[in-house]
Write a protein that binds this DNA or RNA. Structure first.
Length: 461
RNA sequence: GGAGGGGUGGCCGAGUGGUUGAAGGCGCACGCCUGGAAAGUGUGUAUGCGGGAAACCGUAUCGCGGGUUCGAAUCCCGCCCCCUCCGCCA
């Protein structure tokens, strides 16, 4: 979320950033909304000031026993209040209009982010591991899984429709093993605190990390069914047919643990000594995939429900870029430990997420597809989410960053970062494809064997 | 679901209609005291918004939203959240 004051003073930089994302200029309209807002606030405050002053005088007059004066003042206030409601209405409307406009503006890319229109303009910055050479044609993960008899898309479709899967036996365990392995590495080696957050969250949380208001259609909602009586009353009140019982939507299903983890610091004033705050969580994630019809329809690559280990860091503004590199490194360590070849790309301006200033994607090699596919996405969001959440910190006393006058004792917005560390479902896809054997079995990666009860190979039984 | 108790500043906690943005305490900051520290002591310590070069001024904020009133932390209504006991439930 942008600070309108910043836009007012840095309109050029703001527009430059928009242009790099391929967006039309907006600052003129925003500043007009801002002018309207300030004018409305000013008018209301003027009225309030006169009302307050008169009220004090009334108090004084009554104490002095001057009833006539008090009555005269009361009449004056009554006059002031005549168009009070319209002033309030105008103020509220002006503020809401500006806020709504600001809430749907994406973050500005950092200078070093490459310009570009879409994923074709992303820039590879590193490559790790050598794709294995096969003396047979490697299969895609769904063929491997179904061949093993432990991955069932048809059963999932009967239960839930498209974009679901049922994993069983050693594959169910493999998914659990992957998640546990990742969490152990992040908590044991990388200094992240494991968190079990709610998977159902309110509007405010979804707004904080910027899934709302712009990306409603990508989300699932969780609905609490009304009782019969509540539904009846609601229908009557709404003038609806009482045979239709309308539910109320109370929660959103998280599309990523970024939402609850980042929002853990919402409306908080942290102490600088607590930063950086590093948190990790293994959770299911739920996505409607509304805009992805026809994409990745087969297999586990794109599901409505998937498991993911997420990394979130809360830092000072001075720490965030360094933390971004570190976080991406932590995700890379997972792939390295699993010996999965990958490449690291920096997303171009046109492919970056809404809240991000800069994003690295890790793309794992999938021999069955013969492609690198996204398995992790690590973003630094600056204070964009912090503003939406009102998440701040108080600088350690006396300390100023690099001698800069950053410490006037006031709370400052934190910086937030999030990254997959890594997507568990896709990691399983990668393991199956990279570790497949000619006979259809799958070798268990060394790092996962302790989590698989020592099992070395998954085969049809 | 039933019964009850609560939501006030970074924290604790007073405050039932009129200089209350809010007593008191804790914490914190700075100063004094000290050889140094502790203790003691003095001063200062919320946030948003608007205006201003600044000092500062104005305005709003005592869970949220309405209402009563010239004036609301204080009275009325609705909602949200938290807690305790009982019941139900994984």
């Amino acid at each position: 979320m942008y600070d309108i004051k910043w836009i007012r003073e840095n309109a050029d930089a703001f527009e430059k950033g928009r242009k790099r994302r391929g967006l039309e200029p907006l600052s003129t309209q925003l500043l007009a909304l801002d002018d309207a807002r300030r004018a409305a606030i000013g008018e209301l405050q003027k009225a309030q000031e006169r009302r307050n002053a008169a009220s004090k005088e009334i108090g004084a007059a009554m104490k002095a026993g001057d009833a006539a004066k008090a009555e005269a003042l009361k009449a004056e206030v009554a006059l002031i209040k005549e168009n009070w409601p319209s002033l309030e209405e105008a103020e509220r409307y002006a503020i809401a209009e500006l806020d709504a406009a600001l809430a749907s503006i994406p973050n500005t890319p950092l200078a070093e982010v490459p310009d570009g229109a879409d994923e074709h303009d992303n820039v590879e910055v590193a490559r790790w591991g050598e794709p294995r050479t096969f003396d047979f044609t490697p299969k895609e993960h769904f063929d491997i899984g179904e061949g093993l008899g432990f991955m069932d898309f048809e059963a999932a479709a009967r239960l839930s429709g498209a974009r679901f899967v049922v994993n069983k036996g050693p594959l169910a365990r493999l998914e659990r093993a992957l998640a546990q392995f990742m969490l152990d590495l992040h908590t044991g080696e990388h200094g992240y605190m494991e968190v079990n957050p709610p998977l159902l969250v309110r509007d405010d949380a979804m707004f904080g990390t910027a899934q709302l208001p712009k990306f409603r259609e990508d989300q699932f909602g969780a609905v609490r069914q009304l009782t019969y009586d509540e539904a009846f009353d609601a229908a009557v009140e709404a003038g609806d047919d009482v045979s239709k019982f309308r539910p109320t939507m109370d929660y959103w299903l998280i599309p990523t643990a970024e939402v609850p983890l980042t929002n853990l610091v919402r409306e908080c004033i942290l102490d600088e000594s607590q930063l950086p705050l590093r948190m990790t969580a293994g959770t299911y994630c739920f996505r409607a995939e509304a805009g992805a019809a026809g994409k990745d329809t087969r297999g586990m690559i794109r599901q409505h429900q998937f498991y993911k280990v997420e990394l979130v860091s809360i830092t000072t503004p001075e720490q965030s870029l360094e933390e971004h590199e570190r976080m991406t490194g932590c995700a890379e360590k997972i792939l390295q430990a699993l010996d999965l070849p990958y490449r690291k790309v920096v997303l171009c301006t046109g492919d970056m997420g809404f809240a991000s200033q800069k994003t690295y994607d890790l793309e794992v090699w999938l021999p069955g597809q013969g492609k690198y596919r996204e398995i992790s996405s690590c973003s630094v969001c600056g204070d964009f989410q912090a503003r939406r959440m009102n998440a701040r910190f108080r600088a350690a006393s006396g300390a100023t960053a690099g001698g800069a006058a950053t410490n006037d004792g006031k709370p400052r917005f934190v910086h937030t970062l999030n990254g997959s560390g890594v997507a568990v479902g896709r990691a399983m896809v990668a393991v199956l494809e990279n570790y497949q054997e000619a006979d259809g079995s799958v070798t268990v990666p060394l790092a996962l064997r302790p989590y698989m009860g020592g099992l070395t190979k998954i085969e049809r039984t």
